[in-house]
Design a protein around this nucleic acid. Structure first.
Lengths: 125, 125
DNA sequence: ATGCATTCAATGCACAAGCATTTAATGCGT
DNA sequence: ACGCATTAAATGCTTGTGCATTGAATGCAT
């Protein structure tokens, strides 16, 4: 793969990313009052992905899942908690860590938003 | 393409994007004191891409090129101008618009950074 | 047991991005 | 010629992000 091809591929990736993120942001925000990253986190949690061996969610792991920094995810979780979509609970085993859990409201919001999410992706992929 | 495949493809795209942007940001910043968007704009200009029919660069067109909003690009251009990499000049034909031009310093900076940029892309694509 | 390095999450801070608005210039219709 | 809608770019404002730091808890070595 020569330089020109690499650059072409990269620009294609950038364009796709920009288009889709932008479309998702609009749709998810308008119809479900959710940001892309917010939905991504909820979606991962509802799948039981990024789970600790003990079965709950740690900030660190969720962060890697959605390609955000630890601090960004800390604040994102704070927003989700403020909106009642997740709860933060102390982890007794290691009291430095916290467990993040989907609330019923959170699971519901995610389930409602998922079709929109999938539809937008379907249009563009 | 079913839902699962679409989501898999999307997550792959997100992961690639995050990894590459992150790597580019680090390398370009450390070695050339440039951000990813900054380089992208300089690179496009050095190619003569995103050009007006009359042969100069308008903010609007550059913005579309690099998938940024008009306001974001306005400020980006301001930063590049502050650093002496581009100049803004009034457009006599339509004095609402401005022409953005690469300076010699800008062209040089871009030429120096390009190998780094291509190398990072090569590693990840 | 005590000290020290390490780890997890939260926070202060700086900065880039988008939206909405503003300012200036243009073109069009009457 | 005048007003009015339109367009280009800049700017005020808010928000999300990352880096660096902090604070608390842990584990390990002595």
């Amino acid at each position: 793969m020569n330089d020109t091809d690499v650059v072409t591929a990269w620009r294609h990736l950038l364009a796709q990313h920009a288009t889709i993120v932008c479309a998702l942001e609009r749709e998810l925000h308008d119809k479900h009052d959710l940001g892309v990253s917010e939905f991504e986190v909820l979606d991962r949690m509802s799948e039981g992905d990024c789970k600790s061996p003990d079965g709950k969610f740690r900030v660190q792991e969720l962060a890697e899942c959605v390609h955000l920094s630890q601090s960004a995810l800390s604040r994102l979780i704070a927003r989700l908690e403020r909106d009642g979509l997740v709860t933060r609970a102390l982890c007794q085993a290691d009291r430095r860590g916290i467990f993040v859990t989907l609330t019923e409201k959170g699971r519901l919001a995610c389930d409602e938003a998922r079709p929109t999410h999938r539809a937008v992706l379907g249009e563009h992929l």
